[in-house]
Design a binder for these strands. Sequence first.
DNA 1: TAGATTGTTAATCGATTAACAATC
DNA 2: TAGATTGTTAATCGATTAACAATC
Lengths: 232, 232
Amino acid sequence: MTARTSSETARVIPEATVARLPVYLRALTALADAGIRTCSSEDLATAAGVNSAKLRKDLSYLGSYGTRGVGYDVDYLRYQIAREIGVTQDWPVVIVGIGNLGHALASYSGFRSRGFRVVALLDADPERHEEVVAGVAVRPFDDLDAIAHEHAVAIGVIATPAAAAQDVADRMVAAGITSILNFAPAVISVPDGVDVRKVDLSIELQILAYHEQRKAHEHARDEVAAAMGGEA
Amino acid sequence: MTARTSSETARVIPEATVARLPVYLRALTALADAGIRTCSSEDLATAAGVNSAKLRKDLSYLGSYGTRGVGYDVDYLRYQIAREIGVTQDWPVVIVGIGNLGHALASYSGFRSRGFRVVALLDADPERHEEVVAGVAVRPFDDLDAIAHEHAVAIGVIATPAAAAQDVADRMVAAGITSILNFAPAVISVPDGVDVRKVDLSIELQILAYHEQRKAHEHARDEVAAAMGGEA
DNA sequence: TAGATTGTTAATCGATTAACAATC
DNA sequence: TAGATTGTTAATCGATTAACAATC
């Protein structure tokens, strides 16, 4: 009961760092695939698209896995990061909503190699229960509870329309799922202890549009200024 | 030339706020669809999944669009946010890479209603040039430059395999595209002035896996502590 | 030993939050 | 006027960055 407080001495990794660990992992895999055995923080930072100070600071939360004057052993660091993230084991995942996006997610081959295994595809529409996507049969949404328990599923992916998202989330939580990746364009609410991450295509595009508009405005101002400069 | 510096007096909206504006926009649309004409910051914050202090702080960067003691007019605020983001106009978008994910993106209906118009689908594979997805024909990747100029495309979406991403990005930049949404699991580098946002499925799942693993560890500690408590 | 590079410190920057004065 | 709610202030928190001592 009070155990959580007493044992909270374990290092806490900042959320911003956690979000970058998978990026480092991917960069290390790319380096390893290129036959590179050792790299400096500068090399790895470049491959990951961050600056080296940030990279070293991030890695320092995990431990001390480099050698001063030398750098990092690519395979060793890769293993340490994979272990820290928790992808040295495979995580069973269910995908709910097998429309266009659900299809694409189910077919995504990057899953297996990165620590995840799609154990079931679920859809509420009986018309889809004939289908097999990437070797996995589409099953009725009502099977969620049985499947989640059978495979000890902790992570669920929502790829349904927005209107269904909250109900799907509720059912996932009831089935014992405690991490949800939500692709539906809707805010879902879940109890404490359940993590939700959201991926939203049109929000990403809108953020780009905002910056694009600002660039256009700056450009217009520059041209006005240039014209006025020409007159002066 | 120096115009950019001299006219930089315009309010600057923090990046974290920019990223939330589309969320508020969506929440306001949901409220409007539900027939709600006026809302308080508390109402809107709940709908958007943030706390009301953050919402009010965010809105304060745009201006003063509420009425003290009353709240916000849903339609008016929605328009102001849409104008700020730049989605009162339609942005032409091209999607490159029409595999499973590209198909799903091309078919995504949320585009049109949220300020974007897919003007072209491009793929390097000639086998795909027969296809029509969601009413848009798939064309050769080499047409990018012509299409980008013809439609004044500013935003490009990369949905190719990782190996092709950097080349596609280079060609997009050469064609005058200055905002890129990258779905390929690769870091791409672009010149200054070009914005890139990245969406990465397996990175999102890995972040969830990390937290899931921590929950499992805490749980294990709790059980040990409970057992020890029972013995004491 | 000299050169290279890590891991850490400390300063800076940006984001969040609670509280409340302003005001409808 | 009394009640409600915004917009803003100021304190707090977390993330980034540069610099460098430690050390291979």
